[in-house]
Computed example of a mutant assay.
Amino acid sequence: MTVVTLAEARAKLSRLVKQVEDGSISEVVIVRNRKRAARLVPISDNRGAGQRLGLLAGRFAPMARDDFDADSRAIGELFTAIENKPKS
Rank of each mutant, 00 (worst) to 15 (best):
R52C: 11
I43M: 09
V31H: 09
L56T: 05
A37G: 06
I75F: 14
R36E: 13
R15Y: 02
L40A: 00
I43F: 10
P86E: 13
L53T: 09
K85P: 02
R32E: 14
K85V: 08
A38K: 06
Q51D: 06
L53V: 09
R47C: 02
S88G: 04
D45K: 10
K12W: 03
L13R: 10
A61T: 00
A81G: 06
E8C: 07
I25G: 03
M63T: 15
A7Y: 06
V3M: 09
G58S: 04
L40W: 03
A38L: 00
A9G: 03
S24L: 07
G48T: 08
V3C: 04
V20Y: 01
A74E: 08
R36P: 08
L40D: 03
M1C: 01
D71I: 15
A57F: 03
F79N: 01
G48M: 04
N84D: 14
R59G: 07
D66W: 05
N33C: 12
A9R: 13
V29H: 12
L78R: 01
T5G: 13
R65N: 14
D66A: 15
A11S: 08
R73N: 12
V4T: 10
A9S: 05
D71Y: 10
D69K: 02
D22V: 12
T2P: 00
K12D: 04
Q19E: 12
R36Y: 06
R65D: 14
A70D: 15
G50Y: 07
K18N: 10
N33I: 05
V29F: 10
K18D: 14
I82E: 14
I43P: 03
P86C: 13
A7F: 11
I30D: 12
R10M: 04
A9T: 03
F79A: 05
L55T: 12
A61W: 00
V3R: 06
R52H: 11
D22S: 11
D67T: 13
V3S: 11
F60T: 02
G50I: 03
I25W: 01
R34H: 15
G23Q: 11
G58W: 01
E83I: 06
N84W: 03
M1V: 02
A61I: 01
D22G: 04
G76C: 10
R39Y: 04
V31Q: 11
I75S: 14
P86L: 08
F68M: 06
R59S: 05
A38F: 00
R47G: 14
K35R: 13
A74W: 04
L13D: 02
D45C: 00
L6R: 15
